[in-house]
Amino acid sequence: MLKIGCHLSSSKGFLAMGKTAVSIGANTFQFFTRNPRGGAAKPLDEDDIAAYLKFSEEHELQPILAHAPYTLNACAADEKKRAFTQETMADDLRRLEHIPGSMYNFHPGNHVGQGVETGIKFIAETLNAVVWPQQSSVVLLETMAGKGSEIGRTFEELRSIIDMVDENNCLGVCLDTCHIHDGGYDIAGNLEHVLETFEKRLGLHRLKAIHLNDSMNPLGSHKDRHEKIGRGSIGMEALTRIVNHPSLRTLPFYLETPNDMQGYKKEISLLKAIYQAE
C-alpha cells in the first residue's frame, strides 16, 4: 500500500488534520509544529490528541511528519538565533512525545558566510543538545537544493552532521525530490546511481521519508521551486519510478506541491493509480 499524504494546516488540531487527510484519500500527513515563519506553539490539547490517536489507529495514519518552522537556523552566525533554534526544536520534540512514532523534519540551515565546516559544527551542537536516547520521534535532516549558503545539498554534508551527533541512532534523512534534483542529483535520468551514492555516503537505512515534488527548474539549478506532480523537469515517468522503486516504495511520501486540497486529492489519486502492488 502506498503511504501518501500532503502538508496540512495544524490550526484546528490533530483530529481535524486526520479527518482532512482521510477526506482527500491520504493515509499520512505533514504539518508545521507552529507558524512556519515563527511564533509560539499553541498549547497542547490533550483531549484532541487522545481523539486523534484513536482516529489515527482506525485509519492507519502513522507515521506523520512534523516540520520545523522555516525561521530556524541551527548554524546561524548570531548565537541568540542558534539558541532560539535549539529551544524551539527541544520544545517541539518534547511535544511530539505525545504522538509516538511521529517524525520531525528540519532544514539543516544556512551558514551565512561562516563556511560549511563551521555550519556543520553548529548544527551538530544543536542536535546534541536536543535529542535523547529514549525519544520516540526520529529527527530527519532534509536534503537541500543548495541555494545561497544552504547546508545539506550533498549527502556528504549530511553524513558529516550525523557523524558528529552522539545519539545519531535518533537521526534519519528526508529526501526531497525537487531539492536533490535542483541540487544536482539526477533522479530523473539515473535514479539507481543516486540511490547507490546515498547508500555509500549515508546508508539507505537512514532514509525515512520522501518529499515528493516535481521541479520548476533544470537539474543542478540550485533554485528550489516546487512544481505539481508530472508538470516539471523531473516528470511523471521519473516520479513513477521513484514511488515504485524497491528501496523507496515502502517509505511514506509527503507532497509539497503548489496545490489546494482538491489539487492534493487529485495528485494522491494519481499516485495511487501508478503505484504497482507487489
Rank of each mutant, 00 (worst) to 15 (best):
A188T: 03
L212I: 15
M216H: 14
S215D: 03
L158I: 08
D166Y: 12
L212T: 11
I210D: 09
I210F: 04
N217I: 02
L171T: 02
L202Q: 04
D186L: 05
E192L: 05
F198V: 01
M216W: 08
R201K: 14
I161F: 06
H193L: 13
A209F: 15
I161Q: 04
E196N: 10
M216G: 07
P218S: 12
T143L: 03
N168E: 01
I162G: 11
Y185A: 00
G203E: 03
E150M: 09
E167D: 12
D166T: 15
F155T: 00
G183E: 02
T154E: 02
A209S: 14
F155P: 02
I187Q: 06
N213Y: 11
N169D: 11
I151P: 00
H205G: 11
H205R: 10
R201S: 05
E196K: 06
D166K: 11
I162K: 04
D186H: 06
R206E: 14
T177L: 08
C174S: 15
L202I: 03
L141V: 10
G152W: 02
R153D: 08
R206T: 12
A145D: 10
S215L: 02
N190H: 15
E157F: 05
R206S: 12
L140N: 10
I151M: 13
I151R: 11
G148H: 07
L207R: 13
N190C: 11
I187L: 07
L191W: 03
R206D: 15
E156T: 12
R206C: 10
H179N: 09
L195G: 03
L212P: 14
I162R: 08
L202V: 10
E167S: 09
E156N: 09
T143S: 11
G183P: 00
L204R: 04
H211Y: 13
D182G: 07
I210A: 08
